[in-house]
Design a protein around this nucleic acid. Structure first.
Length: 570
RNA sequence: CGGGGCGUAGCGCAGCCCGGUAGCGCGCUUGGUUUGGGACCAAGAUGUCGGAGGUUCGAAUCCUCUCGCCCCGACCA
C-alpha cells in the first residue's frame, strides 16, 4: 500500500468529548469517526484493525469446529415474545414497527434466531452436537454509551451458539471454547484473564468472562496470586469470618456526631477504625408485602447488589422520604437498633462484630458499643452481600485475594435449556423420545477488542498495537522521496521486496516532512518502521526502529528486508 | 430516567457577567522559502454562534422552551 493512494487522517488534538485514552487515540489516529452517540464509522485504517481481529477470531472458531453463518440483524417480535424476552429485555432492546405495524427489533443478540434455525433443521441426536457462530453488527440501546467503541450502541460481535444432546456434551464444548478463547486472546497479543462470572440476564449455569487487564476497565476482578482462582467482583464470594463473635466489652451509649454522615467521618470523629462502623442501607423490595428492609454492612465494605438481589429479590434504594417515614430519621444516622419488625439482612462480616458503632435513628447521633443479642436481635438473615476487598481470604482457601480492573471482551455461558425449552427446540434421542437440547453461548466483543488493545498498548506518542492487529505491520518512511531518485528507488525496492513476501507494509510516499510522517506512524501504532534517506544511503545504510524501541538502529540497505522479516515474524 | 456541565469555523478554545462590526491557535487554499521529528513568510477561504420563540432600536451575549453532547448513579461483548 502506498500512503498517497490510501487515506490517512490524523488529528493533533483530540475532540474534547473523548474521555479515555483509547477513544482519544482512535479519534486522533483516524481509526473511527463519530456519527451519533455510541455510533461510529470505521475509517479505512480502523477497519483494517477490526478485520484483523475478526480474521483471528474466525480462524480459531473454524479450527475448533464451529460453523459460520449470518443471521438477520432485524428480527420479528414474535420470537422475542416466545422466549419471554420481549417483556424482560427493557429499553435497551431497540424496537420498531414496519409499514404494516408489525413489531421488530434490531438484534442485540441472537439466541432466539439461532434456536429457531436449529429447531427447524435438527431433528435427531445423530445431528448433534452443533456449533454455529456469526460475526455481526449488534445494537443495544445503552443508557449511557461512552468510551467510544468500548461501550458503543452499535458494535461488532462474534456470537456462537452450541447445541447438545446432553449436559456432559455441553460441558465438553464449553471447555473447548474456554481453550479456544484463550488461544484467540493470546494470538491477539493481549494481556488477559479468564474469570468466573455471573451469568446475568442471559441466564444459565456456568459462565466465564475474558477480561483484558487495564486500569480503565469497567469491571473489577478478584484473583488469588497463590492459586488460579479469579472471579468478577460481582460474583467473588466473601467468606464468613471464622470463629465466634468476640464478647461484648462496652456498654451501648448514644454519642453526638453532628454533621457526620459518612462512615469515614464518623470513624475519624470518634477516633475509631472504620471497621468498627456498621452502615445501614435502606431498600425497598419488589416482591414483599412489606417492602422496606435494612441491609447491614461493615463500614469499610460496599454492597454487592447482585448478591443482595439473590437473597432478597429485586429491590431499589429507598427514597429519603420513605426512610424518614419508616425510621423517623434522615439517612446518615439510620441504624438497626430499636427498629422492631423491620427486616434486617446482615453481611457475614457484620454478624461477627461486637462493640460496634451504628446510626441511632436520631439525627446527629450514633450509638457506640453496640452488641448483638444484648442490644438488638441477631439478624434473621445473615448472608454474603458485599464486594470482596483486597486481602479477603480466597474462596478456594489458598491465600488472599487481590483486585484489578478489566475490560470484558469475551463471555462464555452454559445456557442449558433456557431458550431451547421456551422455543421448543428438541430432538429425538436414541430411544426415539423427544428431548430438549442443551445450549451453550459464546460471545466476543470484536470492536471492543480494538479499544481494549489500545488501552493496553499506548505511550506518549500514540498507539502501540500488537503486531497481529496493527493496521500495517511496517511503515517505510523515505526522507526526500519526491526529490531524490536514490531514495525513491531504494524505498521502492525495499517496499517491493517486503510486499512480495506478504508483509503488510505501507510506503509513505506522501509529500510530507519527515516529522509529520514519523508522528503519523507512531500515532497509528505501526509496530515496525524503516527510514530510508539520502544521508544513510551514502553509506549504504537504512534505519530500523520498532515502535517500542527508544532508538533506531542502522542497518545495511541490503540487509534491511531480511531484518524486517525477522522482526515481523518474531 | 434523576443530578451536574457544555454547545461559537474541520479540531482545540476565547468572547457571554457588563447587549453594539464574531475572534485566536491548529488544520485548509495559493505563492515563495524550506526538507531527518508535527517548518517559516506572505496572501486568502471557512461560521444559519445547536434550534425555535421572546425582550430590545440592536442578541453569541438577557429570558423561555427545545435538541444534541459530555460527566456522576441503575445494563453488557
Amino acid at each position: 500500500m502506498r500512503a498517497s493512494q490510501y487515506f490517512i487522517s490524523t488529528l493533533k488534538e483530540a475532540p474534547s468529548d473523548a474521555e479515555i485514552i483509547s477513544h482519544q487515540l482512535m479519534l486522533r489516529a483516524g481509526l473511527i469517526r463519530r456519527l451519533a452517540g455510541g455510533i461510529y464509522t470505521w475509517m479505512p485504517l480502523g477497519l483494517r484493525v477490526l478485520r484483523k481481529v475478526e480474521a483471528i477470531v474466525r480462524e480459531e472458531m473454524n479450527r475448533s469446529g464451529a460453523v459460520e453463518l449470518l443471521m438477520p440483524a432485524v428480527q420479528p417480535a414474535e420470537l422475542w415474545q416466545e422466549s419471554g424476552r420481549w417483556e424482560q429485555y427493557g429499553p435497551e432492546l431497540l424496537r420498531f414497527k414496519d409499514r404494516h405495524q408489525r413489531d421488530f427489533v434490531v438484534g442485540p443478540t441472537h439466541e432466539e434466531v439461532i434456536t429457531d434455525v436449529v429447531r427447524r433443521e435438527i431433528k435427531s441426536y445423530r445431528q448433534l452436537p452443533r456449533h454455529f457462530y456469526q460475526i455481526q453488527t449488534k445494537f443495544r440501546d445503552e443508557i449511557r454509551p461512552r468510551f467510544g467503541v468500548m461501550r458503543g450502541r452499535e458494535f461488532l460481535m462474534k456470537d456462537g451458539y452450541s447445541f447438545h444432546a446432553s449436559f456432559e456434551d455441553l460441558q465438553r464444548e464449553y471447555t473447548r471454547m474456554y481453550e479456544t478463547y484463550t488461544r484467540i486472546f493470546t494470538r491477539l497479543g493481549l494481556s488477559f484473564r479468564a474469570v468466573a462470572a455471573d451469568p446475568g440476564s442471559i441466564g444459565g449455569t456456568g459462565s466465564h468472562e475474558f477480561h483484558v487487564l487495564a486500569d480503565s476497565g469497567e469491571d473489577a476482578i478478584a484473583f488469588c496470586p497463590e492459586s488460579d482462582y479469579a472471579a468478577n467482583v460481582e460474583l467473588a464470594e466473601a467468606l464468613a469470618p471464622p470463629g465466634p463473635r468476640p464478647t461484648a466489652n462496652q456498654p451501648m451509649k448514644e454519642v453526638a456526631t453532628p454533621g457526620k454522615i459518612k462512615c469515614e467521618d464518623v470513624a475519624a470523629f470518634l477516633g475509631l477504625g472504620i471497621e468498627k462502623m456498621v452502615k445501614a442501607i435502606a431498600v425497598m423490595r419488589d416482591s414483599e408485602a412489606v417492602p422496606f428492609a435494612l441491609l447491614l454492612l461493615r463500614g469499610d465494605h460496599d454492597l454487592n447488589e447482585i448478591k443482595a438481589e439473590k437473597i432478597i429479590g429485586r429491590f431499589r434504594f429507598a427514597h429519603d422520604g420513605e426512610i424518614e417515614q419508616q425510621l423517623g430519621c434522615r439517612p446518615g444516622y439510620i441504624g438497626p437498633v430499636g427498629t422492631r419488625d423491620i427486616p434486617v439482612i446482615a453481611d457475614h462480616a457484620v454478624a461477627a462484630m461486637s462493640d460496634f458503632v451504628c446510626g441511632a435513628n436520631k439525627p446527629g447521633y450514633h450509638l457506640s458499643g453496640v452488641n448483638f443479642v444484648r442490644d438488638l436481635p441477631v439478624p434473621a438473615t445473615v448472608a454474603d452481600i458485599r464486594n470482596v476487598v483486597t486481602g479477603d481470604p480466597s474462596p478456594d482457601g489458598k491465600g488472599s485475594l487481590e483486585l484489578c480492573r478489566g475490560i470484558e471482551v469475551g463471555h462464555i455461558f452454559q445456557l442449558r435449556t433456557k431458550y431451547s425449552e421456551a422455543l421448543k427446540c428438541s430432538f429425538l434421542n436414541e430411544e426415539g423420545q423427544p428431548q430438549t437440547m442443551e445450549m451453550g453461548c459464546y460471545g466476543i466483543g470484536v470492536s471492543r477488542i480494538v479499544g481494549a488493545a489500545i488501552e493496553q498498548g499506548h505511550d506518549g506518542r500514540g498507539i502501540v498495537f500488537p503486531s497481529a492487529i496493527a493496521p500495517f505491520e511496517l511503515a517505510i518512511v523515505p526522507v526526500g522521496y519526491g526529490k531524490s531518485t536514490f531514495v525513491r528507488e531504494a524505498a521502492n525496492r525495499v517496499y517491493d521486496q517486503l510486499a512480495a513476501v506478504g508483509i503488510d507494509v505501507i510506503l509513505d510516499d506522501r509529500d510530507e516532512r519527515p516529522g509529520v510522517m514519523f508522528a503519523d506512524w507512531e500515532l497509528t501504532g505501526i509496530p515496525h518502521r524503516v527510514v530510508i534517506g539520502e544521508r544513510g544511503l551514502k553509506e549504504g545504510m537504512a534505519e530500523y526502529q520498532g515502535r517500542r524501541d527508544a532508538e533506531a538502529e542502522k542497518v545495511p540497505l541490503a540487509e534491511i528486508a531480511a531484518l524486517v522479516r525477522l522482526k515481523v515474524c518474531s
